[in-house]
Design a protein around this nucleic acid. Sequence first.
DNA 1: GGCATATCCGAGTTGAATCCGAACAATTAG
DNA 2: CTAATTGTTCGGATTCAACTCGGATATGCC
Lengths: 206, 206
Amino acid sequence: MPRKPQQPRAHATVGAIVEAGFISLARHGVENTTTRHIADIAGVSVGSLYEYFANKEEVFDAMHEHMVREVVGMVRPLIPTLVRMDIRELVAELLYRFRDLLERDDGRYLRYMSYAAYFAPRDQIEPINRLLMDLLMKYVMHHPRLVRLGNLPAMGFIMINGGVFTVIRYLTEPNPTVAFDDLVRGLGDMVAHFVDGELQRAGSAD
Amino acid sequence: MPRKPQQPRAHATVGAIVEAGFISLARHGVENTTTRHIADIAGVSVGSLYEYFANKEEVFDAMHEHMVREVVGMVRPLIPTLVRMDIRELVAELLYRFRDLLERDDGRYLRYMSYAAYFAPRDQIEPINRLLMDLLMKYVMHHPRLVRLGNLPAMGFIMINGGVFTVIRYLTEPNPTVAFDDLVRGLGDMVAHFVDGELQRAGSAD
DNA sequence: GGCATATCCGAGTTGAATCCGAACAATTAG
DNA sequence: CTAATTGTTCGGATTCAACTCGGATATGCC
């Protein structure tokens, strides 16, 4: 039964362990990330690690939470601005920011992200999905013509998942054959043309 | 150093181990899939497993190869037919077949795929990517108006990765909020509208 | 300072991955 | 057909990483 850190010293230990988790993962990959590695990098003993985490899995969970908080913290304040943008700009802004976040600290988060989908249970990714779905809904509200779009849940699912995974996969590609700019432009065009096409279809169906 | 099976009995053993891998994975998840489990399900001893596979990883590699062969074997013969279809039909046909394959044998392949999609080294997924890129190119050839589309590599990357991951993610969702039919229709619309939009843009730029 | 509590430590235990040498089966030479 | 050789299987022994535990050290409060 892991304990809650109470003194500042203990909080620092927990923080160091989580950070060490990212570092070890980026350095050795998941397979070769042992509790001993993590403890060593964090500068504490294995015993201390198990003082605050029931098992290795929980360290990953904590890393995940950290990452989610980071992403949400980045996107949420942008929402009011994003909502007023042209749809292509929105896609671009979001994707460039997302890339920058993932590539920070030598791709520490990116490396984790490419494993997370497998490790992390659904409900841990959920906050990000909800956030993006929320953004989508707010965007539609601010652009009344979009209210006519049908089946937003399905389209949201496609755009969010398709977008996120495509970018993660692109960034982990060792030597990409296309430029990131082209990818971003492509995704923007995709969404924009979809919207235009659907609106046209809805309009002619009146 | 693992050996190559030579006698039919040994081939059967190897086959049983690979199949047992899928079964164990579907039953217990990756975490709890041990070599002992796999050997037990296959009806052989651990020793035999290590006779043909250097380590557990290699069992997974073999499963991967099996899966890729399965997918390629399904898609390749369809290409001549797909290439003549309307683009929405093509997307639908491909996705329904893909789903059926993944859900065969109680989702044996799906379970593996959701693990492999993130973990498998690039070069192991490559054949599927190449196959789909090939399909895309052939499709463009058969529909000359599409030749005007710009930046096919980037769009191919988006459509292939976005499509595949979206579907895998959808199928592993415990209780999806949208119907698979809607997802398929959405993806079809996405691609179709994109094509129309781009052609329109290219046309007006003449 | 002295007590209570929080934190840290690392050798020891446990179990899964992997190795290995003997037993068993198939194939081949004579 | 028998013996020798080569292929196959087996399961106990070994190794290494996850995790535990009892004691040592640090912190905060009186």
